[in-house]
């Protein structure tokens, strides 16, 4: 097997770093309202998730289709439980008043 330069990984790494720094910059150094900041940061986060999935997790490669589907649905389940669940818990009840 030939050893290739891991271009995908390097590009993915640089993209992740840049996107993160950009998010910090938007949050700390700009004058947008909080809502707009959240939308921009959120968009970066989702974009970065795809970068990770494709560049590092090799989502598009491999023959094991069923395993991929199970993995992706499990990840979506976890993400929904953790993110949506946390927002639900922390913004209703006493915290809302």
């Amino acid at each position: 097997m030939k050893k290739q330069f891991p271009l995908n990984h390097v590009v993915g790494f640089i993209l992740s770093v840049v996107l993160t720094i950009f998010a910090v910059f938007i949050a700390l150094e700009t004058d947008f309202t909080t809502t707009i900041k959240l939308w921009i940061i959120g968009a970066f986060a989702i974009f970065q998730a795809f970068v990770q999935l494709i560049m590092f997790m090799h989502m598009t490669e491999g023959k094991a289709k069923v395993a991929n589907i199970i993995n992706i649905s499990y990840s979506i389940f976890l993400a929904v439980v953790i993110v949506a669940g946390s927002i639900w818990i922390l913004t209703t009840g006493h915290a809302a008043h």
């Binding site: 976890l78 439980v81 818990i89 209703t92 009840g93 006493h94 809302a96």
Partner: peptide, 18 residues
């Protein structure tokens, strides 16, 4: 087990639904 964590802090003042 991924869906039960709030039972450790029912008393934080969650909504009845939670």
């Amino acid at each position: 087990s991924m869906l039960v964590w709030v039972h450790h802090f029912y008393t934080m003042g969650n909504s009845a639904a939670v």
